[in-house]
Simulated scan of single mutants.
Amino acid sequence: EEIRMMNKTGNMFYELFSRYRGSSFETGLRMYDSYAIAYILEPSIFETVNAFVDIETKGEYTSGCSVVDLKGYLKQESNATVLLDADPEKFEQWFLKSVKKCC
């Protein structure tokens, strides 16, 4: 309700969440796209690690999947920053503050 009443943008998010994620209001929303934006704008919210990441297309590691080697088993040089965790309170504060700035 808080986000719905903020402004037009908040109402838009509320409607999207209600329609596509209505059953998860009680259990929490997983907001992957918003996390990506938050990482760019507020990286302190996240715990990260550098790791080797590859998309398997030949069946060498696994067929058609993303391979994220967090433990270095593949002995490959790190080529990506991987988000491991987020502080949910900080993310919520950032998200609500960002929506409040909108029209």
Rank of each mutant, 00 (worst) to 15 (best):
E1W: 09
I3V: 15
I3A: 11
I3L: 15
R4M: 04
K8M: 10
T9Q: 06
G10W: 02
F13Q: 05
Y14H: 08
E15Q: 13
E15W: 07
L16F: 06
F17L: 15
S18F: 03
S18P: 00
R19N: 11
R19Y: 14
Y20R: 12
R21G: 14
S24V: 09
T27E: 07
R30V: 01
M31R: 01
D33G: 14
S34M: 11
S34Y: 05
Y39I: 03
Y39P: 01
I40L: 14
I40A: 14
L41Q: 08
E42M: 06
S44R: 15
S44W: 04
F46W: 13
T48K: 13
T48Y: 11
F52N: 01
V53S: 05
D54A: 15
I55R: 09
T57R: 06
K58Q: 10
K58W: 06
G59W: 02
G59S: 06
Y61F: 12
T62N: 02
G64V: 08
S66M: 10
D69E: 08
K71P: 02
Y73R: 13
L74H: 13
Q76Y: 06
N79P: 09
T81G: 02
V82W: 01
V82L: 06
L83D: 02
L84W: 07
L84T: 05
L84A: 05
D85P: 00
V99P: 00
K100D: 12
K100A: 15
C102S: 13
